[in-house]
């Protein structure tokens, strides 16, 4: 099985889906001739032409709006928002139009569209190129929010997202793009949306995470194994809808839960996960549910030491796990 990077898995999924279904097309800023600022759409314009690989104006509201309209008419648009930070002008289209289309038209219309957006920090992107925006959308029924952490999941989930009949926000952690490599089958496969996955089995502490911090958790778990602490790691993969069953099972596995995400603590997905566990797995709990998340500050600092402080890392995660293990 070939080993490829996270971003190459994005490209492969896009290419395969465009080959499979000619209704699939990509649009966004610099996705065509440039092949995307992160090279996610590299080579697509050459293969599929400018009719299916659209360079758009710097107008996120239009990118999303075009996708809404096209999808309503049966196309399968995959819109790229260059940085998740820039999604704000498109929020009205995504939240008020795409998310509600099926509901308000009484099933007459729906939006089978995907909005891809690189999110997250750790790349010296500072304020406008580092934000985690996923939690802003996980409170919107009608949307699906997907945040893969491995190349395998990227390919499988992106395919599922493109084939989904309703709008899917597909958030790719940009630090993972070239940092995370993994085996990806060449053949066609999908990973179901709404299914979390146990990435590591353990018995002392359960860590629930997604995206880049999932890798921090795995690293911490590896390190802690040497100290005799066995860590169970669940990758949420999809934030909306949450895989309740998997969350409850993972929480019950150890009774000690740590939820880790880079998105800031307040209002983050961790709060929702924690509430599910508290309500439905209360008698499995052996310790207060803990959350480890980005600080509640307005933005990622540009200063490298401050960025480092803002970002989580395997050590911070390991410390939190250790505390729970000792409890």
């Amino acid at each position: 099985m070939p080993v490829m990077s996270y971003i190459d898995a994005v490209t492969q999924a896009l290419r395969e889906e465009m080959q499979r279904d000619e209704k699939v097309f990509v649009l966004g800023e610099d996705v065509g001739v440039r092949g995307g600022v992160f090279r996610a759409t590299n080579g697509l314009i050459e293969e599929f032409g400018e009719q299916r690989v659209l360079d758009t104006p710097l107008t996120e509201s239009a990118i999303a709006g075009v996708a809404v309209g096209a999808s309503c008419y049966g196309m399968r648009p995959v819109a790229e928002i260059q940085f998740a930070d820039f999604i704000m002008p498109a929020v009205n289209q995504i939240v008020s139009e795409a998310a509600k289309m099926r509901y308000r038209s009484n099933n007459a219309w729906h939006c089978p569209m995907v909005v891809r957006a690189p999110y997250g920090g750790g790349v010296h992107g500072a304020l406008y190129h580092s934000q985690s925006v996923e939690a802003m959308f996980t409170c919107v029924p009608g949307l699906k929010v997907v945040t893969p952490s491995t190349p395998y999941d990227v390919k499988g989930l992106l395919k599922s997202a493109i084939r989904d009949e309703d709008p899917v926000l597909f958030f790719e952690h940009k630090r993972c793009y070239r940092l995370i490599k993994g085996e990806v089958p060449n053949e066609d496969y999908t990973v179901p949306i709404g299914k979390a996955e146990v990435k590591r089995e353990g018995t002392d502490v359960t860590v629930i995470s997604y995206g880049l911090t999932l890798h921090f958790a795995l690293k911490a778990a590896e390190q802690l194994e040497k100290e005799g602490i066995s860590v169970h790691v669940l990758d949420l993969r999809t934030l909306l809808p949450l895989d309740k069953e998997a969350i409850l099972e993972a929480a019950s596995k150890t009774g000690k839960v740590l939820i880790v995400h880079e998105d800031n603590l307040t209002g983050g997905v961790g709060g929702e996960v924690s509430a599910i566990i508290a309500q439905e797995a209360f008698f499995e709990l052996d310790a207060p549910i803990r959350r480890l998340a980005g600080p509640d500050v307005p933005a990622m600092p540009y200063s490298p030491p401050l960025e480092k402080e803002f970002m989580l890392n395997p050590e911070k995660v390991a410390n939190a796990i250790r505390e729970l293990a000792e409890f």
């Binding site: 009774g255 209360f282 008698f283 499995e284 709990l285 052996d286 310790a287 000792e326 409890f327």
Partner: peptide, 28 residues
């Protein structure tokens, strides 16, 4: 903890007899 209480009850374990290994002697 809720888990400890439930398990103790289900298995008729007298918690007074159990030596805790957790922080502050907590029974885990």
């Amino acid at each position: 903890s809720p888990a400890v209480l439930r398990l103790a009850q289900e298995n008729n374990i007298d918690l007074e007899q159990v030596q805790g290994t957790g922080k502050g002697g907590r029974i885990t």
